[in-house]
C-alpha cells in the first residue's frame, strides 16, 4: 500500500507541474494590467515602467514562471500585488471561512443525501420516493446562486431568522454563534450536491437490492433493516464514496459563486476579486492550493476503497 501511495504521489506531482504551467499561462492571457489597477488610470508611463521593473514583469514569461516555481517549491508564494502582503497570509485570512463553509456543507451533503437516498430506495416506487426523487431532480438542476438568493429572501428577509451576509470569525465576539452566518450559504452550496448524492445513493441501493447475495441474506432470517444496512447499503456505498471526489471539485467552483452571493470573506470571493485586480500571485497561489487539495481528496477516496471493498488491490 505504501508503494501505491508513493506512486500516486509521483503521479500527483506530474499533474501539479502541468497544472502550474496552465495556471500561469492562462492568468497572463487575461487582458488587463495589474500595474494600472495599482497605480490608477492617471499613472505616467515612467511610473508604470518603474513598477513593472520592480515587480519583475519586464522579464519573459518563461523566466517569470521558473522564478515563481522555484519560490513556490521553497514555500514562498510571493507577495500580493494588491495587498502588498505575502500571498499565503492573504489566503490564510480567507481560509477559516472557506474551510468552515466546506465542512458544514459536507455535513449537510452526508446528512441529507445519504439517509434520504436510503429512504427513497427502501420506499421504491411509492409517493415518498417519487416526491423525494423529484425534489432532488429540481435541486440538482437549479443553480446555486438562485437557491442562495431564495434562501436569503425567505430566511433572512421575510422570516428574519438568519443573517443574510458576511461572516465574523468564530474567534471574534460571538464565538461559535457566528457559525449561523454560514448556515444559509452552506445549505445553498449543499443543495445541488446533496441532491446528486441522494440520487446516486438511491440508484445504487436499488441496483444492489437486486443482487443474489441480498436474497441469501434475507433467506438467513435476519431482520430487514439489517439486510438494508449491512448488505445493501454497505455495497451501495462504494459508488457513493467515489462521487465525493467529484463533489469536492463542484464545491470549490460553486463556493466562488456562493461566497459572492452571501458576501463571505472566503477564498472563493478572494479569487474573484483577485482576478478583477489582476493580482496574479494570489490567483496562482489559490488555484495551486486547490489543485493540491483536489488531488489529496481523490487519493483519500481511492485509498478508502481498500477498506470498503476487500476485492480492491492497491498496486
Amino acid at each position: 500500500m505504501w508503494l501505491y501511495i508513493l506512486k500516486r504521489l509521483g503521479a500527483a506531482a506530474t499533474t501539479l507541474a502541468a497544472a502550474s504551467v496552465i495556471i500561469f499561462i492562462f492568468i497572463h492571457l487575461i487582458p488587463g494590467d495589474p500595474l494600472y489597477v495599482l497605480l490608477g488610470d492617471g499613472a505616467t508611463p515612467d511610473q508604470v515602467d518603474a513598477l513593472r521593473q520592480k515587480l519583475g514583469f519586464d522579464r519573459s514569461l518563461a523566466v517569470q514562471y521558473f522564478s515563481w516555481l522555484s519560490n513556490v517549491l521553497q514555500g514562498d508564494f510571493g507577495q500580493s500585488i494588491f495587498f502588498q502582503t505575502p500571498v499565503l497570509s492573504v489566503i490564510g485570512d480567507g481560509a477559516e471561512t472557506s474551510i468552515l463553509l466546506a465542512s458544514i456543507t459536507m455535513v449537510w451533503i452526508i446528512l441529507l443525501g445519504i439517509p434520504v437516498g436510503m429512504i427513497a430506495a427502501m420506499r421504491h416506487g411509492s409517493w415518498t420516493d417519487q416526491g423525494l426523487s423529484g425534489l432532488a431532480m429540481l435541486l440538482a438542476s437549479v443553480p446555486t446562486f438562485w437557491v442562495g438568493l431564495y434562501l436569503i429572501l425567505i430566511f433572512a428577509a421575510w422570516l428574519g431568522w438568519l443573517p443574510s451576509s458576511g461572516y465574523p470569525s468564530i474567534f471574534d465576539d460571538g464565538g461559535l454563534a457566528n457559525l449561523q452566518h454560514l448556515l444559509l450559504p452552506s445549505l445553498a452550496l449543499a443543495a445541488p450536491n446533496a441532491a446528486l448524492i441522494l440520487r446516486l445513493t438511491r440508484a445504487s441501493m436499488l441496483d444492489v437490492a437486486r443482487e443474489d447475495y441480498v436474497r441469501t441474506a434475507r433467506a438467513k432470517g435476519i431482520r430487514p433493516w439489517r439486510v438494508v444496512v449491512r448488505h445493501i447499503f454497505r455495497n451501495a456505498l462504494l459508488a457513493v464514496v467515489s462521487a465525493f471526489g467529484f463533489t469536492l471539485a463542484a464545491l470549490i467552483s460553486e463556493a466562488v459563486v456562493t461566497e459572492t452571493v452571501f458576501a463571505l470573506p472566503g477564498i472563493g470571493r478572494l479569487v474573484v476579486q483577485s482576478i478583477l485586480r489582476r493580482d496574479y500571485p494570489v490567483i496562482q497561489g489559490v488555484i495551486l492550493i486547490t489543485v493540491v487539495l483536489y488531488l489529496g481528496v481523490n487519493l483519500c477516496v481511492d485509498l478508502s476503497y481498500r477498506f470498503l471493498d476487500p476485492r480492491v488491490e492497491l498496486e
Binding site: 443482487e211 443474489d212 447475495y213 436474497r215 441469501t216 441474506a217 438467513k220 435476519i222 439489517r226 449491512r230 448488505h231 454497505r234 455495497n235 470498503l308 471493498d309 476487500p310 476485492r311
Partner: peptide
Amino acid sequence: TSLNPVLTIGDQLAE
C-alpha cells in the same frame, strides 16, 4: 453471486 463480496465467510455465517 450468492455471497456478499465485502463480508468475510465467517461474518456471513455468523449472521
